[in-house]
Nucleic acid binder design. Structure first.
Lengths: 106, 106
DNA sequence: GATATGCGCAACTGATCGGTTTCTAAAATT
DNA sequence: AATTTTAGAAACCGATCAGTTGCGCATATC
């Protein structure tokens, strides 16, 4: 049951839905028209995306408009940034090592 | 069999492995020490990460050093950037609409 | 009020996933 | 040469996943 953003964007259809909704809010039927699969299949994806708070529902009469909650996308950025930080620190760590070696040898 | 980067980073253990290897190359045994699961389980993750070219193998005697292939991580950035671009264009689209309305009414 | 539309929910199915256990091969150690 | 270490490969298992079909429930439309 535990949904996280990374699992959510693992599915190509869900990524396509996110891309679609980045432009403007849409109803399940309108979204489903962009895919070969049934509305129910799309509805399941919408449920998963909503559960992990990537989407937001806005009922309007008997229709429900789904919109992208861009803030949640930042969680991906945060992780990417973390990895990038460590990746870059790699060099300074090598510098530290070389410094240590120099001290030990001299 | 089709492996893509997004599926690869969907698993928390694999993300942890990526974070680990961002610092420096490691052998499967060394990596496995950081987790509760068996070496074989970790080895499977390494296989998946290597298949989608996120990792690179460097045999050294009977050991294999796995290192992060940072370039492949950019694929995630590219998608994120694409979504962000569309998200931002949302407003200019609204501007276009307002422009159109203005023309129609005036 | 009857009908049509839009949508979520539940049950089912085949495929895939993450994990363990067992086995094999190659390189290092003795 | 025998043993130990390192690691991938294969077989298996329960859990989860993506998808379909069928259903029920609201909200519009006639």
């Amino acid at each position: 049951m535990r949904r996280d953003v990374f699992q959510a964007i693992a599915d190509p259809t869900r990524r396509a839905i996110i891309t679609l909704l980045a432009l403007h809010a849409m109803t399940p039927n309108a979204i489903a028209e962009h895919f070969q699969s049934t509305r129910q299949a799309v509805s399941k994806h919408l449920r998963i995306l909503t559960e992990c708070e990537l989407l937001h529902q806005e009922p309007q009469g008997r229709e429900i408009f789904y919109s992208l909650h861009m803030d949640k996308m930042k969680e991906i950025d945060i992780w990417m940034e973390q990895v990038r930080k460590i990746w870059e620190s790699r060099f300074s760590q090598l510098d530290d090592l070389l410094e240590e070696m120099k001290k030990g040898q001299l």
